[in-house]
Amino acid sequence: MGVMQQFNEPNLITTSTDKLFNWARKNSLWPLQFGLACCAIEMISTGMAHNDLDRFGAGFFAASPRQADVMIVSGTVSTKMAERMTRLYEQMPEPKWVIAMGACAISGGPFLDGYSVLMGADRVIPVDVYVPGCPPRPEALIFGIMTLQKKIERDQQVGYERPRPALVNEDGTINEYLPEREYTGISEGKAPRLEGMRPLQRTYVFERAGMPPGAQTDVGWVPPEVKKRLKEEAKARKAAEKEENA
């Protein structure tokens, strides 16, 4: 902590527990030693001397899930592997985070419609950071880790209840809490924030509940509402053209 160098004698620092714990957590991220496919090679390369993941405190790849903080899902997740991956995730102690590295871990990638491929790691475990690429360069993974650090910085340790999925009655009362396995919402950043703390800038909202639409793998597919809108726009354009000519 650079601030300690400013003191000439033993001193006190006043800070919030959130700030202290988040500072400690984000600077000692231990990824799980867990490689699935070609992205793992890039992950290994990231950990090597040239890119030096140790600068971010994330260079120690823990060989046991009991000692790991981050799971980097690096590669295609086959449906059989999904069970093992979920088990590893569950064996990791809280707090824990997941980085989906590469196209395959995000959506299934080029193997999307294969008979054995899971369409994205976020179907079974909550993902915090998505790093696109096929495979992503080490710089991209480092950027993903830095993004995760920023997310951890804004985390809240105490004073709020972790969002839990529940069955809700029509009047809004909670009928029954669902088991922890149904991770919905946790990765969506819905935890309440302290006032004055900027919320994370989100670019995507992943609607991934239930089955994927059958047409998701169809190249020519356009959502019906978009199709409708496009049609209407074309109609309006045509009408405007007609008016101009007349």
């Binding site: 449906t79 999307l112 419609d113 008979y115 054995s116 369409m119 179907r123 059958g214």
Partner: peptide, 21 residues
Amino acid sequence: DHHPLLKSFEISTKRTFEGLR
């Protein structure tokens, strides 16, 4: 409940997720 390398097996994304969430 399928044998994927049979010629009669057709790829379907839905089938992959039968019973899996």
